[in-house]
Design a protein around this nucleic acid. Sequence first.
DNA 1: ATGCTTGGATAGTGACACTGTCCGATGAAG
DNA 2: CTTCATCGGACAGTGTCACTATCCAAGCAT
Lengths: 211, 211
Amino acid sequence: MRLAELSERSGVSTATIKYYLREGLLQPGRRVSATQAEYGEDHLRRLRLVRALIQIGGVPVASAREVIAAAEDESLDHHLRLGAATRALPSAGALAEDDPAVETARRSVGALLERLGWSCGPGPDVLGPAHRRLIDSVAALVRLGYPCDTEQLLPYGRLAAQLAVTDLDMVEEQPTPAGQIEAAVALTVLYEPVLLSLRRMAHAQESARRF
Amino acid sequence: MRLAELSERSGVSTATIKYYLREGLLQPGRRVSATQAEYGEDHLRRLRLVRALIQIGGVPVASAREVIAAAEDESLDHHLRLGAATRALPSAGALAEDDPAVETARRSVGALLERLGWSCGPGPDVLGPAHRRLIDSVAALVRLGYPCDTEQLLPYGRLAAQLAVTDLDMVEEQPTPAGQIEAAVALTVLYEPVLLSLRRMAHAQESARRF
DNA sequence: ATGCTTGGATAGTGACACTGTCCGATGAAG
DNA sequence: CTTCATCGGACAGTGTCACTATCCAAGCAT
């Protein structure tokens, strides 16, 4: 199909598709003449994924490119590629070293991981982006004086562990390795707004129940 | 304290504090002369809250202002003000009416809410922003062909309900109504990155366990 | 032959969250 | 009383991000 048809079928404007092509989020189509290119069903599928990641998941364009690239990198093994989505989070810079709130947060999170029996990841001092973001968030809560020690965090951690089982089950339903990678990316990112929306709705529900 | 001290104690630059003052996120200080103003502990606390909402929670400045305003609006009752945080989500525009994916999503979500026994909110057709975002997200998953019907959603919903209980317990620990409102805002927004980070870490953990 | 469409290149847009610079007034030091 | 750094306020400027508008020459359809 032509660019215009790709645009119509995906609901994404041609200008935006061209932008994604420029940014390397989409493979260029098969050139059929000097001024025309042919796109296939896989382009459409990929475009829909990219769109969902960016619009629904709120993933920055640059991160989306990295995720896609990692998912396609044949040199990595399955497990590493499954983790590719995780590593492309907005990484939020380095942690302040001298901030007491950050120190408290670091200790709470460390104790939490121990209680949950989670290994910390790559190395002792090399924290993944999710780990750093967790510490940052806990530090902000500590700074505001809210209870956020291991005791408070533990139920969240256990719930996260439950979610991970459900999520990985869904990933394993995919027959092909490539499908599993794509599912891991899509389900990791796109269930996030689902979870947050449900939590907010549950808040409203529970609040109405109590008052 | 002076603006400079407020800046030093909060770690926010004076330029940014002035910006927040302009935007109405912070009350102006008590004018002590034509060119000087005095700020108190409550300004510091509020500044830290605003900073956390914006930096950690990713709340847009305009939404943060609305949240703060609603939290301070004495004319609303307790329950309504508790919901103020929820209503200031990035609202993501109207849903496409003719999209079959959106229709499917709407039905799945409706069935989910019924199964969970949640009342839909304000009215029959007036969906809250969280509700709309949920439908949008589910629609994106449907469009990509991932399983996202009521069966898949139900465990997420139940988990969200559990979270709401924990969260509201934390809110109710606050002694004053004003403290409860602030806690509701802060905990709703700031536990979101905590939850998402933990989920991603749990994914990595579970994935390592399986492969 | 003609006129509309296509894909590519490049520059521009608007929202967002600050940030830099200037200013006159003021408070503090000598 | 003078000097001089500092203060708060106003306003324009910056960098980023995700597009979007315009232009162009080369085709394709009629």
